[in-house]
Design a protein around this nucleic acid. Structure first.
Lengths: 239, 239
DNA sequence: CGACTCTTTGATCCTGATCAACACCGGTGG
DNA sequence: CCACCGGTGTTGATCAGGATCAAAGAGTCG
């Protein structure tokens, strides 16, 4: 729980545009910025700036600061923090910080978890693209709606179900990028997971232990290996 | 928890329009249909039909049925039920069933609690009024927004706070009609209150007992008398 | 008056929070 | 290379809030 101790010295953008955002990128096929296959979206590649590396706890954006860009995770992990709670985790290939207040300010903090690189989409360039191209505009509108809707989480479900469906969600999202993976990296602390799920860190550990005892996963010190994804989904049922 | 056993034989509208909806009505000054003092709203009075009496458990509207009217409580109490939960209580003077699906169907059930009379605002007449008069249209739009927003309740607050703020809410709403009252009728069962607040009936009783022990209210078999409204509000704080 | 339902109250159980002890790691400095 | 250290993860013990079950009052309606 030591996030955002100070604003990190903002690392410079090292490379820009097609020089860094092209089919050679690990997530090119699945990146939320260009996903969907529509050729029009490829224009997004030309406005990208690569930003990083950020170290653990560095704050990428802070609330009330002017909204100058949206971001995608290139590698590592980021989380959105607000009101003393973790509101979302962002995996490689996922866009975030799309939303802004009516006054054009960020609504939450976003902090890096471990060493992390980002792809930066400057606001001005993005807006220009949206005016030119309806496909891009509606694509981003959809993602923004999705981001805003997230916080609606299962609230009074038992702890085991919340952890299970959290992992199932992470697995699904990771498989957008790496289809057959069974490993879910968890570089964030148990406290952060607990904050996100509304339970104590000790309970997170206990629920993982229970899933392990049920043969559903194995716990490593950098994440979990899902042995039985179907059973995992089964535990997440609210029934 | 015996609501909606069967569809009640729909009681006929006994009187219509100004013959039943005028300044002689107990809630005329506070009825949500005409509240705000704007003279334009008084046109609502001419389209009213009085409906009742309904008996305990009678279903006034049911989900997926065509949305033919909105209602206000004239006397008694109504509750909106959906998904096996009580979603809202409706006090005398309050409008409900304003919302409909895109296909023009009701979204939830509404059942009477005890002997209850309603004021019925037929959909066709209401729509006609709205086209004629922007004041009425925006007034109803506002109420509809309010109705839709309701379900956002304190969810993980302790039981005592939930009961306290529930009573504080009821008191505030009752005072719209009867400004200095300290009595809150509770004709619904403890089960229904518990369902609404997300706790067991036994816990509702226990929390009422605790508030009584603290001298905040006295419990009667038909409701509670608030002795210290300020302290009641204090218990509702999420702090 | 009697059957029934609802409320109240007590006893027990279960879930998850909290606290504390301990193991495990990744460093740092000798 | 090894001892030391602080942070994190795990695990056990205890605790509190509320659910559940059961039994005993209190109305209510026939």
């Amino acid at each position: 729980m030591h996030y955002a101790p100070d604003i990190a010295s903002p690392p410079p953008a090292l490379r820009r545009g097609l020089a860094c955002c092209n089919d050679a990128c690990r997530h090119a096929h699945a990146c939320q910025a260009t996903r969907g296959g529509a050729a029009e979206l490829l224009a997004m590649r030309e406005i990208v700036e690569r930003a990083g590396p950020f170290a653990d706890g560095d704050r990428l954006v802070q609330p009330d600061a002017p909204h100058l860009a949206a971001y995608a995770v290139l590698s590592g992990l980021a989380m959105t923090v607000g009101g003393g709670r973790v509101l979302a985790f962002h995996l490689p290939g996922e866009l975030f910080a799309l939303d802004a207040t009516r006054q054009g300010q960020h609504t939450h903090s976003v902090v890096a978890v471990g060493k992390t690189w980002f792809c930066r989409f400057p606001r001005a360039a993005t807006d220009a693209l949206c005016e030119h191209d309806d496909a891009i505009a509606s694509h981003l509108r959809g993602l923004r709606r999705e981001e805003r809707r997230r916080p609606a989480q299962g609230d009074d479900a038992p702890a085991l179900a919340r952890v299970a469906s959290f992992l199932a969600d992470l697995l699904t999202r990771r498989r957008q990028v790496e289809p057959d993976t069974t490993f879910i990296p968890l570089p964030m602390s148990r406290d952060d997971i607990g904050s996100y799920l509304g339970m104590s860190a000790a309970t997170v550990t206990r629920m993982l232990a229970r899933l392990r005892a049920d043969g559903i996963l194995t716990v490593r010190n950098d994440g979990v290996c899902i042995a039985d994804a179907a059973a995992l989904a089964g535990h997440g049922l609210t029934a």
